[in-house]
Design a protein around this nucleic acid. Structure first.
Lengths: 207, 207
DNA sequence: GGAATGACTGTACCGCAGGTCCAGCCGCTC
DNA sequence: GAGCGGCTGGACCTGCGGTACAGTCATTCC
């Protein structure tokens, strides 16, 4: 709140900003506290003033990531809904927009924070794992709500559980990011999202 | 080769065995050399006799993982082919077998080595990344070959690129493992594989 | 029988990263 | 001018990855 001095607008946020970029690029373990404090120009004590330990940083990072992710999804669905009344076509449009968004990324997708956490299991306490879990379950509920609206109008042509179909989007985004990173192919993720879209179409409209 | 003494059957293999379990459970960064040497009962010098550094261990681990993975897939497809002449039904049977295999795991799936590597980017050199990449591309080619055989008999009912459809299996397995781990739901992966199977059916047989 | 080789052991040491402790400082508000 | 938020500075500890190097002991080759 040093708006008058203007010297630094929230050091904590600047730490998180820098940390997020570093973590998504090279992993949490590889991101040292020393590099972060050098980056924002504070001392080690300053870092530990904001975060009691590295785990607290991870927690804050994950929380921030999930929040922003939700905002993006809200906007995306709002945009799609504005263009369309029908729940199925709204969902399909949203998926198209999402795919375009992912495809527009020139570099390979920065990576998924949830997966980052998952494959760094030891580093984090239960609390942080619960956070990741809640994030994924929130996605499930969000997509499931969309599917419920669709199924009321379009009886499914294929026998699928709606929770599974909802999870499938999270699965494909997460897996898509990983495979996209490993193969260094930035468009792979977008193409996989389009495949999910094709599947949703097949389920509710038939082949 | 100390078969006569019988004292130790290949310390290197025992190191890899122990390391694999530890890495898949808690991540590469969290697996210390000290815990490994304590586990197999050798000295630190002994470890560095076998691996020049931790990166070499990672490389050996990944190589071993990919090799074993290929053996499992070979057996699985052979088993499915033995039951079936038709390429589409062979593929569908293989997917069913694969799903059952994943579902039979009482605990959550141990995790995918490729993803482990991907989210530990910094630790590893180019060589190891190339290894992971080659592994994924080998999967693509393997599944693509199956799809090519199918498409010759069953013209696709939906417009999909076969490379994308091949990649989709890797994507769903990898993403499924991650989401399965995060939600601590061991059956999620199996259900997602069944969804992939449903999509393949829809593509080649229609809804 | 002697030399070489493979598979180690033991000891000592280095640098880095995470983390702790604690005293102090500076600008702001009450 | 007292107190608080947001730091600084420095000393110190631990664990881990890694290096260096000399020695050991069983087996194998000539």
């Amino acid at each position: 709140m040093n708006e008058i001095t203007g010297r630094r607008e929230n050091t904590r946020d600047r730490l998180l900003e820098l940390a997020e970029a570093a973590v998504l690029q090279k992993g949490f373990g590889a991101t040292s506290i020393e590099e972060l404090i050098a980056g924002v120009g504070i001392s080690k004590s300053g870092f530990f003033y904001h975060f009691s330990d590295k785990g607290e940083l991870a927690k804050a990072l994950l929380l921030r990531y999930i929040e922003r992710d939700n905002v993006i999804l809200d906007e995306l669905f709002a945009q799609a809904d504005a263009l369309n009344e029908d729940p199925l076509h709204g969902f399909l449009v949203a998926l198209k927009l999402f795919g375009d968004m992912m495809g527009a990324m020139t570099e390979v997708h920065p990576g998924c924070m949830v997966a980052s956490v998952c494959y760094q299991e030891h580093l984090f306490d239960r609390e942080i794992h619960a956070l990741a879990r809640d994030g994924v379950i929130a996605w499930r509920r969000r997509f499931r709500a969309r599917l419920d609206a669709i199924v009321a109008l379009y009886p499914p042509k294929l026998p699928v559980e709606l929770d599974d179909l909802a999870d499938m989007l999270s699965v494909m985004v997460d897996g898509g990011i990983t495979i996209s990173r490993v193969t260094r192919d930035p468009v792979l993720l977008a193409r996989q999202i389009m495949l999910y879209r094709a599947f949703v179409k097949a389920v509710f409209l038939g082949a």
